[in-house]
Design a protein around this nucleic acid. Structure first.
Lengths: 220, 220
DNA sequence: CAAATAAAAATGAACGTTCGTTTTTTATAT
DNA sequence: ATATAAAAAACGAACGTTCATTTTTATTTG
């Protein structure tokens, strides 16, 4: 009646999935052989099949585990947001997002594998109704922003916040995964500062008179 | 002594590469077999190797062809930009970018394949010094914007324009490739309108006094 | 608290299949 | 008749998975 202790099973699975993640994200799903995984995990080929029925099951298990991890991190990025459009708060969020992207580039590599080799089966829900989810999470804070009097009433706060959130992720992803070394022409800190300044100062009305004049004068 | 006319060779290569693109972007590089390509192109396996030495050469030839095509489209998106930050001009650019993304999702699928299966070998240069390239293309127009008097002098015009450009691509990519059906909570047209309003109205100074007050009042 | 025990875990060779590529054969067009 | 394109056949290597066997492990027993 000796069965491997549950924590031992957990430990072995983590070892296998860590190894599999490493090779999957470098060679793709079909570019990775189970021998690659076994070797990377220092486990026999046969034993892999004691823990997973198929190679694809390993892939799906990795995604499940990673998705749970990312959900925690996303909460961390959005969690303590109080004055949602306060530049200082956005700076903090940007810093967390930077950390998330730089620490977990493999998460997006998995996403790209899913798109190119699995028809976006596993990550399809991630971006669905993003703004609506944002509204559900930050509804009160977002609504509060519109009641300050200076809010640009033409702009939906949920859209605005989601756009900033996505823009920051995009910036760091381009830097980390797409090889865009300082693709905005300056350091991360300065670029983020400028992006936030751009976004926030556009959210607050200034009456719009001098601005329009400026545009008219500009040429078009 | 029949030698295939050059345009016939070109035609056959295009047929093969179109077929290969179709299967590559659905199964990935290693998930696609040369038999898949041959069948899709209605060509024998052996004959494939009369046109390409290896499977990888087919992949690289596709990228080369597609990159040239995309460069033309990018020029179209940026081409007739005169008042670079004029909302109407940005609307036009957004429309072109939408068209580009919706007509060519396979270009980005190739990019994701390159990242996950080739270590970003072939597309690494695409995002390098994006803002600097933007400066090279639109330098005069960007500089002109800073001389209108109402420009927010803290913000680098090249960064601002590149950020808007990237944000629009990101928006449509999320919609088309990542399954985010109306992820900003509204139609493409309305979302784009809001993004542009957000970005541009943040570029022009209003003195900053009432804005800061608004933020202070907001809670943080 | 060892030693014995039985069940589970781990192993690596072997399976049939499919892979990318090469070689051989056939068809075609001057 | 001959050079070339296209197709078919064939190649060894590598694929995902299975399985008979060995090793390890947690428990029972003395």
């Amino acid at each position: 009646m000796p069965k491997l202790r549950l924590q031992a099973v957990e430990r072995n699975q983590k070892k296998i999935e860590d190894a599999a993640l490493h090779v999957f994200t470098r060679l793709g799903f079909h570019g990775t052989s189970v021998r690659d995984i076994a070797k990377e995990a220092s486990v026999s080929i046969g034993n892999l099949y004691n823990y997973y029925h198929t190679k694809e099951e390993i892939f799906e298990s990795i995604i499940e585990r990673y998705e749970a991890h990312m959900e925690k991190l996303r909460r961390k990025a959005l969690g303590p947001v109080q004055g949602v459009f306060d530049p200082a708060e956005l700076q903090r969020m940007a810093h967390v997002i930077r950390e998330i992207v730089y620490d977990n580039p493999d998460y997006w590599r998995l996403m790209y594998i899913d798109i190119t080799e699995f028809g976006n089966q596993h990550f399809a829900g991630t971006f669905r109704s993003l703004a609506k989810n944002m509204q559900a999470r930050l509804g009160p804070q977002l609504e509060a922003s519109t009641r300050t009097g200076v809010w640009n009433r033409d702009i939906d706060p949920a859209l605005a916040f989601t756009a900033i959130y996505l823009q920051l992720f995009t910036y760091f992803l381009v830097e980390k995964l797409f090889g865009g070394k300082q693709h905005l022409g300056m350091s991360d800190d300065r670029a983020v500062e400028q992006l936030i300044k751009m976004a926030t100062e556009g959210l607050w009305r200034d009456g719009g008179k001098t601005k329009r004049d400026g545009l008219r004068r500009m040429g078009k």
